[in-house]
Design a protein around this nucleic acid. Structure first.
Length: 272
DNA sequence: GCGACAG
DNA sequence: ATCTTGTCGC
């Protein structure tokens, strides 16, 4: 019973590539909102974050979470955690086919139940244009929901000649303080993303890329403005809450129909 | 051919 | 992604 999930048939991967190409035609790489052009993001009030946390024991169970935070206060206005059953295995370059269906559902649920809390932009775990076919999970989710999306990856997805070699490590060392960046330009000559040092306390950068309806410069600026620690607050909160949700699930073998007061607030700080 | 490979 | 406590440092 150990081991990884069965790899998808070659035909499935080809079909997924075609789907990415089809949807990819709809990606908008420019700012489309007024607040995006304002130096202080005046008019921006809500930023969303999404994430999936997995259960080690069960290959198919995960918790999908969507949170909406106020801007610039970073207070949690909305939280939605839900256990889901994932069907697609994880394959680098095809993350969207594993996670996006549940994220779309979460966004739709929010728009139906709390339309006033609809986020004006979504920070997504993973990449956008910084992707083998220029269509990572952030683009995928953006096109399907028509929400501005930004890809925020914690590790570099090696593609288009971009590699984690000594030169790359040297560029990382050159990032001295938060806000410092260097462009991720592939062999093709195109800037696919930006490495961003988001915290003075962590030397590890974030890899920012355009998802949908936002330009790279705006994306980097916004992510930086959402960072109290290395991980931007919206994604960090989605992450914290989804794994906390799973922890509770595992500790309660009894399925209760109605239960009242839940308490217990603990926050894991520091992400380095 | 072999290795690398977001979450 | 997940397994995992305390601990060294600013």
């Amino acid at each position: 019973m150990a081991g990884r999930a069965a790899p998808p048939p070659e035909a499935t991967l080809r079909a997924w590539e075609r789907e990415q190409a089809r949807l990819g035609a709809g990606v908008v790489e420019e700012d489309t909102e007024e607040w995006q052009r304002d130096p202080g993001f005046a008019g921006l009030e809500r930023v969303g974050g999404v994430d999936l946390s997995y259960i080690k024991e069960d290959e198919t169970s995960a918790c999908a979470s969507l949170v909406v935070l106020s801007y610039p206060g970073m207070e949690v206005l909305y939280e939605d955690c839900r256990m889901v059953t994932v069907s697609a295995p994880y394959v680098a370059g095809f993350l969207a086919f594993r996670e996006v269906p549940f994220l779309v559902e979460a966004v739709q649920r929010l728009q139906q139940e709390e339309p006033r809390l609809r986020p004006q932009v979504l920070l997504v775990d993973g990449n956008g244009l910084l992707h083998p076919r220029g269509f990572g999970v952030a683009c995928h989710l953006g096109v399907l929901t028509d929400l501005p999306c930004i890809g925020v990856a914690k590790n570099l997805l090696q593609t288009d000649g971009l590699v984690r070699d000594e030169l790359h490590r040297e560029q990382i060392r050159s990032l001295q303080k938060e806000g410092d960046t260097f462009p991720l330009t592939g062999t093709s000559g195109r800037a696919r993303g930006m490495a961003l040092r988001s915290s003075n306390n962590s030397s590890r950068p974030l890899y920012i890329s355009v998802g949908h309806r936002v330009c790279l410069e705006t994306a980097v600026r916004l992510v930086q403005s959402c960072c109290r620690y290395r991980i931007p607050e919206p994604i960090r909160q989605a992450d914290i809450r989804s794994r906390e949700y799973i922890r509770k699930q595992l500790c309660s073998p009894l399925e209760v129909t109605s239960s009242g007061p839940e308490s217990g607030k603990k926050e894991a700080e520091l992400d380095d």
